[in-house]
Computed example of a mutant assay.
Amino acid sequence: MFKERAGLIVWISDLKAAKSLERYGSIHYISKKMSYVAMYVNAAGLEDTTKAIQKLSFVKKIERSYRTEIKTEYNSNVPDKTAFYSY
């Protein structure tokens, strides 16, 4: 149903030209102060998309987000201390 997405942080030099990145994927956030764009692109064509974005004149650097590779399920092996502190 949903396509696999990958997150990109694109550092830019021109904020007005940042809107043109919408044709490569969906823009999540544009930082005016720090001049970057957080966006999601199709994971199947990630390498081709990053090469195409890098060729744009206003793009300084592209960083890939590793959020999908971080473990988000946690287990608690630490014993519960609520019984110790209750009277």
Rank of each mutant, 00 (worst) to 15 (best):
M1K: 10
F2E: 14
F2G: 10
K3T: 12
E4P: 09
E4V: 14
R5D: 10
R5Y: 10
A6M: 10
A6T: 07
A6K: 09
G7R: 03
G7W: 01
G7F: 01
G7I: 02
L8K: 02
L8W: 05
L8M: 03
L8Q: 02
I9C: 01
I9L: 04
I9V: 06
W11N: 01
I12L: 07
S13N: 14
D14F: 03
D14Q: 07
L15H: 04
K16P: 06
K16V: 06
A18S: 15
A18V: 06
K19H: 13
S20I: 07
S20W: 07
S20A: 13
L21H: 03
E22V: 12
E22M: 11
E22C: 11
E22Y: 08
E22I: 11
R23K: 14
Y24T: 03
G25Q: 02
G25Y: 02
G25C: 02
S26P: 01
I27T: 04
H28A: 07
S31I: 02
S31N: 02
S31Y: 01
K32R: 14
K32W: 07
M34Y: 10
M34T: 05
M34Q: 09
S35I: 02
S35T: 05
S35V: 02
Y36D: 03
Y36K: 03
Y36H: 06
V37R: 00
V37P: 00
A38C: 04
M39S: 00
M39N: 00
M39V: 00
M39P: 00
M39Y: 00
Y40K: 08
Y40W: 08
V41M: 06
V41W: 04
N42G: 04
N42P: 04
N42V: 06
N42S: 09
A44G: 10
A44Q: 15
G45Q: 12
G45L: 08
L46E: 14
L46N: 06
D48M: 06
D48F: 06
D48Y: 05
T49I: 15
K51M: 04
A52M: 10
I53T: 04
Q54L: 07
K55G: 00
L56E: 12
S57A: 13
S57K: 11
F58T: 08
V59P: 01
K60Y: 05
K61M: 07
K61G: 03
I62M: 05
I62G: 03
R64Y: 10
R64I: 13
R64T: 11
S65H: 01
S65E: 04
S65I: 01
S65C: 03
S65M: 02
Y66L: 12
Y66N: 13
Y66G: 13
T68P: 07
T68Y: 10
T68K: 14
E69L: 15
E69S: 13
I70F: 09
I70T: 11
K71R: 15
K71E: 15
T72W: 06
T72G: 09
E73S: 12
E73N: 13
E73I: 15
Y74Q: 09
Y74R: 08
Y74H: 09
N75I: 15
N75Y: 13
N75P: 05
V78R: 10
V78H: 08
P79W: 04
D80R: 08
D80C: 08
D80Q: 08
K81Q: 11
K81C: 12
T82W: 14
A83N: 11
F84N: 08
F84T: 12
F84D: 11
S86M: 07
S86G: 04
Y87L: 13
Y87S: 12
Y87R: 10
